[in-house]
Design a protein around this nucleic acid. Structure first.
Length: 419
DNA sequence: TGTCCACTGGAAGGGAGGGCTT
DNA sequence: AAGCCCTCCCTTCCAGTGGACA
């Protein structure tokens, strides 16, 4: 290849460009900074609850509440790290072990017990054993020696209603069965009302101590961003307005520090892609839009096939100019599309659940309305741009043929459902 | 005032799919 | 291979309901 071609310098130019970032990792959620601004009080509170473990006294169970991005996880993990360091330094009376579990990932009784048991060297399969057996394996493994186990259950509210409340009960009652070891639970929940769904015995045992993380305000978010920006960016690349703007935009969303960090990082990426030397207000604005759009596209792309068809049905109805879209209409259209694709047709009951899931994802908005004599139904509105989403859906090879599908024209009378 | 529509949403349970033990 | 167990997705059944209409 002729290296004098006009493209030959493209890579060099790319490499020579002064990057904006010094260490982008500092803006990731997983990064643990050396200090946690505006969370000193919560940190001390948690330390004071857990510290007795070092003296061989079983710490009370703790529940930590707060919305997403208020620093619950990072503070807890930070405290766990401090605890580990303390244990490593001195020979304390009691051995202390900490375990972190995210209940969004590990969301069933079986999986939690299996993960815990594995943590203690037990060989438990992904599935197959009766849950009691896994529990026994875990309990016996823990009880082999005198030690204090502190289990951090992140997003503990995810366990409720999936049979997982049972596991919380088991874990909180476990000490009664242990001879040598002691177990304490630290639960982290986004949902303030979460305990009300629990058995009252579990409620009192789990909520012995409670710590509430209030949302950050814009000023506090600014401090956090400043601290991270110092590590993440080269000096002088940030316009003065950038950090306050990121903070303000994130504060609008219940003071979510994660959102603020994402915003700052994506702003940097947008600027970098444009070969800009500094990050300016416009980059932040564009980053904000990009994050929003990316989130929904990703959510839609990863939907199961049936939900995609359902969403496609709603888009078609909206394109046809329906002012109000009801469950019945969606189900009708969905049936046609599914038959068109020779896929199984789910029942209306199931479809109703899928619609609720789409609602929770923020892809659509449904509200139950009563039309008097004409029954009760959900009124459904799309929360995403129809045309753009149609495109995303048609990317799915299974749905591709639907681009040729045409809905019959709107009828003047409310035709009853056909079979 | 009662009726009745078009659903909603809870409960129970079936069965496929994964994986174990004996 | 047979007999279990767990999870996920789904169906079936059904009581409940807000409000327009007769």
């Amino acid at each position: 290849m002729d290296l004098k071609s006009p493209f030959s310098s493209i890579f060099e130019a790319f490499l020579e460009r002064e990057p904006i970032f010094k260490n982008k990792e500092a803006l990731r959620h997983s990064y643990t900074p050396s200090e946690l601004p505006h969370r000193e009080a919560e940190l001390k509170q948690l330390v004071s609850i857990i510290a007795p473990a070092l003296k061989g006294v079983t710490p009370s169970n703790v529940l930590i509440y707060g919305k997403s991005g208020t620093g619950k996880t990072i503070v807890s993990r930070y405290v766990f790290e401090l605890l580990k360091e303390a244990v490593a330094k001195k020979n304390y009376l009691c051995e202390v072990q900490t375990i972190y579990l995210n209940c969004e990932v590990t969301d069933t009784k079986y999986r939690i017990l299996a993960t815990l048991a594995k943590e203690f060297g037990e060989n438990v399969p992904f599935t197959g054993w009766p849950t009691d057996k896994v529990y026994n394996a875990f309990r016996d493994a823990v009880d082999k020696k005198r030690q204090c186990i502190i289990i951090l259950l992140d997003e503990i509210d995810r366990l409720v209603g999936k049979g997982g409340d049972n596991i919380i009960y088991n874990l909180t009652r476990m000490n009664a069965e242990l001879k040598e070891a002691r177990v304490s639970i630290v639960g982290i929940s986004n949902d303030l009302k979460f305990t009300s769904y629990l058995d009252s015995r579990v409620q009192s045992s789990l909520g012995k101590e409670e710590i509430v993380f209030s949302p950050y305000n814009a000023k506090q978010l600014e401090d956090i961003l400043k601290q991270r920006a110092e590590v993440a960016f080269k000096p002088g690349v940030l316009d003065d307005v950038v950090i306050p703007l990121c903070a303000a935009l994130a504060a609008r969303e219940h003071g979510d520090a994660r959102r603020a960090l994402d915003l700052l990082r994506v702003s940097g990426e947008v600027a970098e892609r444009e070969n800009a030397e500094r990050i300016k207000e416009e980059h932040v604005r564009r980053a904000d839009e990009k994050i929003e759009a990316d989130n929904t596209v990703e959510a839609v792309r990863t939907l199961p096939a049936q939900s995609k068809i359902l969403l496609y049905s709603i888009i078609l109805l909206e394109e046809r100019g329906e002012k109000t879209i009801t469950t019945g209409e969606v189900y009708d259209t969905y049936k046609r599309l599914s038959k068109n694709l020779s896929l199984d047709v789910l029942t209306q009951r199931r479809v109703s659940d899928l619609l609720s899931e789409l609602d929770i994802l923020g892809i659509l908005n449904s509200s139950v309305v009563s039309k008097g004599r004409y029954g009760r139904t959900k009124e459904i509105k799309l929360e995403v741009p129809a045309a753009g989403m149609k495109h995303v859906l048609e990317e799915d090879p299974r749905l591709k043929v639907l681009s040729a599908f045409r809905l019959p024209q709107m009828q003047l009378t409310n035709a009853s459902t056909e079979r």
